[in-house]
Amino acid sequence: MSRAMDGGRAVVRRPDVPLRALLPLGLFFLLALVFPFLPLGERSEYLLQIAFFTLVAGVLALSWDILARSGQVSLAHAAFYGLGAYGFALLGKVMPWFLAMPAAALIAGLISLILGAVTMRLSGMYFAIATLAFTEVVRTIIQNLPEATAGGANGLLVPALLGGNARAQYFLAFGILLFTALVSLAIRRSRLHHAFAAIRQGEETARVLGVSVVKYKLLAFFISSFLAALGGVLYAGKTFFINPLETFSLANSIAPLTTSIFGGLYTTLGPILGATVLRVAEEILHNSIKNGYLVVYGLVLMLSILWLPRGLMGLLRRGKHGGDV
């Protein structure tokens, strides 16, 4: 098979990411863009709302995946989603929404650097449990802030995004998911992709090869949490009212994790695809399962691990390696 010395042989040089790989992703965004203009009939308001939360779920899942690419499988996503929601609720009272939104995301991003720094040396289940504990600590702190400012356990009214215009809100969510996807693609085409993958697949080896692990792990945390917080802003601005128990619920950490694994880890399209399928399934099942719809996530997670390790993306691109987008 392999000759002993094939040293002089020329190598076939391929481009990093072939452009055609972007096609399905472009198709998704095209569909999402025209969705509000489709003749949806009398249920259009309801359908638009589902579509809105599907986009938010996509933001959450894809931002989680970006962190996971650096080997950090986090259960703290609810914390940053919630910090975005609370940050927006509080800042939205003193500044216009288009400033409150990035400011809230920035705060969440900066707080994530603290978590990232102290969990730097943890991995696997230790990292997962530490991030889970962190979420609970953040929730308890928010819950115990003075009621006059943060609403305590009862919750907090949030200024409605874009005056409550459902269609405008939808396009804002569309824009943020598009932004998240563009960030993800930019990472895929940059040195970050190689740094994240190297750290995930062998942290010590990566360091020996000169990868500044601390820098890249923190960068992953910041980007991921910033984007997750934008998702939290969308949620808060859409629902008018937030409380600590729901906003910081474990479900908000489980959903992006399951969605990304089901859709296809370490890709841009996978988490978005997973979010669409699971979110629609959730709506369909919502009438039969009032509480405990997470049962679907538990089942999907188990089945994906056992039989679909590369997720939906694995089904789409059977047997192909590299160049996944």
Partner: peptide, 30 residues
């Protein structure tokens, strides 16, 4: 990965090229 992070100031394009060169040098081109 080695080419990209081992020396400062290497762009991704340069690193990919250097990696291909090294594969030829070490008999891994195929």
């Amino acid at each position: 990965v080695g080419a990209l992070f081992g020396t400062r100031g290497t762009t991704l394009g340069q690193a990919r090229e250097r990696a291909y060169d090294l594969l030829e040098r070490t008999g891994l081109a195929a």
